[in-house]
Computed example of a mutant assay.
Amino acid sequence: MKYFVTILFLSVFLTGSTPKKIQPGEGFVEVKGGRIWYKVVGTGKGVPLLLIHGGPGSRSCEGIPGYSTLGNDRPIIFYDQLGSGHSDRPTDTTLWQLPRFVDEIDALRKALDLKELNILGSSWGGTVAVEYMVTKKPKGVKSVIFAGPLISTPKWMRDAKILISQLPKPVQDSINKYESLHIYDHKSYMAATDTFNIHYLSRKPGPRISAPDCAGSGKGNGDIYRYMWGPTEFNATGTLKNFERTPNLHEIKEPVLFITGRFDEARPETMYEFQKEIPGSKVEIVENSGHNKIRDNPEQYLGAIRKFLNGK
């Protein structure tokens, strides 16, 4: 009888101490200013991976088909930040502050009972991720992946100038001319920015195929993008103009992967600079790819993420 009671006690104890397994599905979570939409895919037994999309003002749906292939290993959690995608779209500009976007992660963790998780922040999502790690000092984060991240606006601007200098001279001249005039809608300037995007954002030719999850999802919110960032990828004039977290990277003690494209606007050289700030962190360069790595070279990009997360 004592043996039976002991086994029963241990069974209850172990069951109660095991985190609740997150189930596939979608829904909304209340945050300051409205509701944010989320979707969970995958039935793998690993620690969940939370994806923080780029922007500001972008959406998660384009990445769902690619990242969902990691769902055999672990649950994959997508969400649209307030103001974009399937989430509510308030127009109150006081909501477009980095700390409020950071608070969305806590809201999701509480709603989904995410006691443990891995985090992947892509582009501006890397900004949210680094701010979360540095300001919140959260418990239960097993690892962080910074994918083509914005961690330092001054470094991003420096890299943009380097990349622009590698474009054809007429393209450089158009960008420099209209930047100096603060005219961002001239057809010559817009054509020049298209050239920049083809070289450094997504290099894969052909039309973009809309993901099924994008049906019914609002397009990118340009108002948030311009308010927080600026008129183009290489011209920061908004509230993120002076954003800088390089000096704080050493505060992150969790395993870290920096991953970027060979031709990414988040240049490989800069990722190695960041790596020096976090002992033991890793860098992965995705070949034949610009900033949109999951479109340009999904095999290497997702393979590197899967390898890094193995055992986490």
Rank of each mutant, 00 (worst) to 15 (best):
E30L: 08
K276M: 02
A215D: 11
V31I: 11
P65D: 04
Q166C: 06
L302D: 03
D194G: 10
L114T: 12
S202K: 08
Y3C: 07
K155V: 07
V12G: 05
G46L: 04
F234M: 08
H186V: 04
A192F: 13
F4I: 13
T246Q: 07
E233V: 10
K136Y: 07
L14V: 09
I252F: 01
Y178R: 11
S60F: 11
G206Y: 08
G71M: 05
S60Y: 14
E277V: 03
V102C: 03
D92L: 05
L257P: 07
H291A: 05
M190D: 01
G218Y: 15
K45H: 01
D185H: 11
T18S: 10
N292H: 02
S152W: 00
V130N: 05
K204L: 08
T193G: 03
V134S: 08
G222L: 09
L117G: 04
K276N: 09
G126Q: 13
D173E: 15
P48Y: 06
W229I: 08
K219E: 14
G125V: 12
P138R: 11
E273G: 06
N197P: 00
Q81G: 06
P231S: 00
D296M: 02
G46E: 05
V40E: 14
E104W: 03
K187S: 12
S289Y: 10
N176K: 06
K307A: 12
T237K: 14
V130E: 15
I252M: 01
V256M: 04
G311V: 12
P154R: 03
F243W: 15
A236E: 01
D213Y: 09
W156R: 07
W229K: 06
K276S: 11
M1Y: 12
D88Q: 13
D194I: 10
E179L: 05
